[in-house]
């Protein structure tokens, strides 16, 4: 797919660039740009969080991001430029963890492409979140299984509010 940018950015090497994402998906054909920016928040399930470490299996993550882009293009059925970037390493409160931006001719297509991409990144890409708490404790998030047998059992049972 032309017009697709995928990246994993090591925290030590830089921050995710929202302006670059919006610039990348801009196009004279496009009247709509939708974006999603995920930032590290200071609490989860009643615990005070001081930061998050993201672990990624980078080659497969980039492959998944590209496949998500192809799927978004098919589903939207309109010209599309898409940016998917995720951070790796230890992030502090307020740091940007993920940026998705979609440019399309009209707003409905842009919103749909952006939503599809961020949901797929959260549920299908090999990325793991370890939360660090005020008391010094840390925990890996429970997450969403990529194992097909397990997905068949659990996807009906939970509503994907995460």
């Amino acid at each position: 797919m032309d017009g697709l940018h995928v990246a994993v950015v090591e925290r030590g090497e830089g921050a995710l660039d929202v302006a670059a994402a919006l610039e990348f998906v801009a196009d004279p054909r496009f009247g709509g740009i939708a974006s999603f920016i995920g930032r590290v928040r200071d609490h989860n399930v009643g615990r005070s969080v001081t930061g998050i470490s993201y672990d990624l299996f980078v080659p497969l993550a980039l492959n998944r991001f590209r496949a998500i882009g192809e799927r978004a293009l098919m589903e939207v059925g309109a010209p599309l430029k898409l940016w998917i970037a995720h951070a790796k390493g230890r992030l502090a409160i307020g740091d940007i963890a993920v940026v998705v931006a979609a440019g399309t001719p009209h707003r409905d297509e842009a919103f749909r492409a952006c939503r599809l991409a961020i949901e797929a990144v959260k549920h299908e890409a090999p990325i793991w979140k370890q939360e660090h708490y005020v008391d010094g404790d840390s925990a890996w998030s429970e997450g969403c299984s990529l194992c097909e047998e397990d997905r068949a059992h659990t996807h009906a049972a939970h509503g994907h509010g995460h």
Partner: peptide
Amino acid sequence: LAVLPPVSGG
């Protein structure tokens, strides 16, 4: 190969 626990990106 890689073994991938349930994922939690974003």
